[in-house]
Simulated scan of single mutants.
Amino acid sequence: MNKTNKWIYFFLVVLASCTAAKVLSDEKKPTFYIIGDSTVRNGDGSGRNNQMGWGSFIANYFDTTKIDVQNLAVGGRSSRTFITEGRWDKIMATLKAGDYVIMQFGHNDGGALDDTARARGTIRGIGEESKEIYNPIMKKQEVVHTYGWYMRKYINDAKSKGAIPIVCSPIPRNQWKDGKVIRSTDSYSKWAREVAQAEGVHFIDLNELVSQRYEAMGADNVKPFFPVDHTHTNKEGAQLNAEIVVAALKQIKPKGLSKYLNKQ
């Protein structure tokens, strides 16, 4: 082997070693998975209505050289359809010990179980009730469970992989009464809290925390966050909600997460 070939060989060995080290490093790097509906991920802010969800801004608060942040929420999904469409199975295929899964569902769970437009509703509550229906979207029989049943599945599946689940109650809609934001304290926020407590996992009451911030700002100042309807925030509203999520994460301190958050 001549001198030139030796240098080429040396370079290739070093390059292969660096590549292998990066692959190994990426495999060990934890992932912060975000799952939910359109209030969590809804476009990129460049569309006509500037709509975005809070999950799109979470990565800004993390050192992404140390942790991957994947916002896999999808507009229009309920706690049920995120599973039945196979989206949760894809996450489970890569989920590993030390990962995190933060979840927020509820906005789309109140619909009909078997309507021809969406067929995304869940049975109200957190019990073990179920109902078999014909799903006109999937064109097959399906057993539909309660909202709590699906949330428990996410939690227990994540635990089975050694991942850390974090449950959020749904962000509030821009609906007010007597100067106060209307909460969902008798439905999805309540049920999200109850499931999290029963399963012994972290809970962030976004419904309450965001409502408090909105009330401090006043209805007139909050209104621009909702350019189309009372549910979907624009970029500025999503950024505010992301800030609230991260502040809550710093307070509840899920195992090991603090070392991945930027110092701010």
Score class of each variant (00 low, 15 high):
K90N: 12
K90I: 01
K90E: 15
I91C: 14
I91R: 09
I91V: 15
M92V: 10
M92N: 11
M92E: 10
M92D: 04
A93M: 08
A93G: 10
A93H: 11
A93V: 03
T94H: 13
T94M: 07
T94K: 15
T94L: 13
T94C: 03
L95A: 13
L95S: 09
A97G: 04
A97Q: 14
A97E: 15
A97M: 08
G98T: 09
D99N: 13
D99M: 09
Y100Q: 07
Y100I: 04
Y100F: 15
V101A: 02
V101C: 06
I102K: 04
I102Y: 08
I102A: 00
Q104V: 01
Q104K: 09
F105M: 10
G106I: 05
G106Y: 00
G106N: 12
G106W: 01
H107T: 13
H107I: 07
D109E: 07
D109K: 06
D109T: 02
G110I: 02
G111H: 10
G111F: 07
A112R: 09
A112H: 06
L113M: 04
D114S: 07
D115R: 11
D115E: 04
T116M: 04
T116A: 14
T116I: 06
T116G: 03
A117F: 12
R118L: 09
A119E: 05
R120T: 12
R120Y: 12
R120S: 11
R120M: 05
T122K: 10
I123Q: 03
I123W: 00
I123L: 15
G125Q: 01
I126D: 06
I126N: 11
I126Y: 02
I126F: 02
E128V: 00
E128M: 00
E128H: 00
E128D: 15
E128T: 00
E129F: 00
E129C: 01
S130G: 04
S130K: 14
K131H: 05
E132P: 05
E132Y: 03
E132W: 13
I133S: 11
I133A: 01
Y134M: 08
Y134L: 10
N135D: 15
N135M: 10
N135F: 08
N135P: 08
P136E: 02
I137Y: 09
K139I: 05
K139T: 14
K139C: 07
K140T: 11
K140L: 05
K140A: 12
Q141W: 11
Q141G: 14
E142F: 12
V143A: 11
V143L: 12
V143F: 07
V144M: 14
V144T: 11
V144F: 12
V144Y: 08
H145Y: 15
H145N: 09
Y147Q: 00
Y147D: 00
